[in-house]
Design a protein around this nucleic acid. Structure first.
Lengths: 112, 112
DNA sequence: TCACCATTCAACCAAATAGTTAAATAATTG
DNA sequence: CAATTATTTAACTATTTGGTTGAATGGTGA
């Protein structure tokens, strides 16, 4: 297992992006399908500009992709960085092996 | 699937704690076994006080526990919050299902 | 007790974060 | 073209973060 300093900055921005409840909520929203900025902003109690900035943080971390579509910007989730975060966490699963086993079993069932 | 606002602040501090390379390195170090503060600080190119603060961030996120042991403070990893982070990420695994499958297979082998 | 060792605390600083409002940009429709 | 709609940018502010140095705390051993 070699060190991978080149991944480090990626993990920084991925975990940083996930560290804000608004951004996690945006990811949850996008898990339901692509959406444009104002639709995503609607349930949040802050300005559109603020949501726009949060989306930029998510985009820079690679968690979402944004495509201009007419005058609308369509955002959709990209799971790749989530996978990277998952991968990092998994290295330490020995410290919660019991929970890991339970989760694995749970997924096993769901995953059919 | 109910909302769990009470977990939100926890996830904030967990992901926030993981978002810094020094703190992830400290976790990697502690994965090798408990250690005291100055031992942990030694490989890092910053003051002991700075490492001490990083350890406090990890402790507040619940990722480590610190027990006074004589004049030394012994730190050890607690995987529970890692499990919480893992759990959150897992909700979106449908967006990286292929990688998830590959990882699962990989773990399957390693996990015997 | 005295000196030492491990660690934290306090004060400070620069940079980043998260929000605001108002103006700018750019596509759409009448 | 003019008005509208969607979104970003700019400028500003308050707070947090991540680092520093130096002093304080508190256990250990001579």
């Amino acid at each position: 297992m070699v060190e991978r300093p080149e991944d480090d900055a990626d993990l920084d921005s991925i975990f940083q992006a996930l560290a804000h409840p608004t951004r996690r909520a945006l990811i949850e929203q996008l898990a339901g399908g692509p959406a444009n900025v104002s639709t995503l902003a609607e349930p949040h109690d802050m300005s559109l500009a603020a949501v726009s900035k949060h989306l930029q943080v998510l985009e820079e971390a690679g968690l979402i992709e944004v495509e201009p579509e007419g005058r609308v910007r369509r955002c959709h989730l990209d799971g790749t960085p989530l996978s990277a975060a998952f991968g990092w966490l998994t290295r330490y699963r020995i410290f919660w092996e019991d929970r890991f086993d339970a989760l694995e079993d749970h997924l096993e069932q769901e995953h059919q």
